[in-house]
């Protein structure tokens, strides 16, 4: 599921991908599907309760040449933010 969140005075939008509750490789595949639709420079934030995503998403991002922005944890939810680079 995709939602659009405004980032205040920043012009670009960050897409939120809510993949909570699903298991590997669900969050990664949802991210990749959203990445295909995104424009270069867009940020995407994936919400995941699958801890493996914390390693798998950066691995995929680095392998294919996008940018990791940050990973944070709130309770049992991981917020993984990436930027489409190409």
């Amino acid at each position: 599921m995709l939602e659009l969140l405004s980032k205040g005075n920043i012009m670009s939008e960050r897409k939120i991908i809510d993949a909570r509750g699903t298991y590997c490789p669900g969050p990664l595949m949802e991210l990749i599907a959203a990445m295909k639709q995104a424009e270069i420079g867009d940020e995407l934030e994936i919400l995941s309760t699958d801890e493996g995503s914390v390693n798998d998403v950066p691995e995929w991002i680095n392998k294919v040449g996008h940018d990791m922005v940050e990973t944070t944890q709130e309770g049992d939810v991981w917020h993984i933010i990436v930027r489409k680079a190409k």
């Binding site: 699903t22 298991y23 490789p25 990749i32 599907a33």
Partner: peptide, 17 residues
């Protein structure tokens, strides 16, 4: 009993993505 990604969806993603 878990919310696993359906295998048919994963195979379809392998093709589409």
């Amino acid at each position: 009993g878990k919310n696993m990604p359906p295998y048919l969806d994963l195979f379809e993603s392998a093709v589409d993505l």
